[in-house]
Amino acid sequence: MTRTLWDSTVGKKTIMAVTGLVMLGYLVAHMVGNLKIFFGPGEFDGYAHWLRTMGEPVLHYEWALWLVRVGLVAAVVLHGVSAYQLSRRDIKARPAKYVHKKPRASYATRTMRWGGIILALFIVWHILDLTTGTVHTSFEAGHPYQNVIDTFSTWYGNVIYIVAVLAMGLHVQHGFWSAAQTLGVGNATRDRILKTLANLLAAVLTVGFISVPVAVMTGVVS
């Protein structure tokens, strides 16, 4: 089974679809959690602390959080490795290109590969900025509300974040529909529902995530 799943193209595509949906589920939870910033530092910092105590007393402190982190790293790695290997196969499958070029795919479709690379680089920066604080100028562990405000008080913090969120929106818009196709959920009649759902998810996530830096920039959150 492992051989069939990992070696075959459909298997790798299934892995990409499932890991993509896992990450998409996480993004929805992450976005909803971020919105707590509009309820003030008490709510937001309290929520961040709860993320470390969730699962207690069955699990020890931070265990649930680490389980989520390990799961997400596995999803990112599997998604990225499958994407790389599938892209290599795609390029090998058509060594001689058509002379008559016809642009047929949407912008979101054409930017899946570069968008994915941008997102991977962003995740590294995002963790170094707001989880470990390595690249943060005035990081204070346990005070995420203040850390977020500090990040979005710099121009580059806003630019990096907003560019990455827009890339995420495009990636989700095409990726969600693609995952449905790969898993065999799509058909001619369901296509419209799936595309609407993909657009909706992409729009809600993009607006939800961007609302935080915009709120800090406009002084709504300070």
Binding site: K92, A93, R94, P95, A96, K97, Y98, H100
Partner: peptide
């Protein structure tokens, strides 16, 4: 009119 063969390594 541009006329080309199927293009694939297969």
């Amino acid at each position: 009119i541009d006329i080309e063969p199927w293009r694939a390594s297969a």
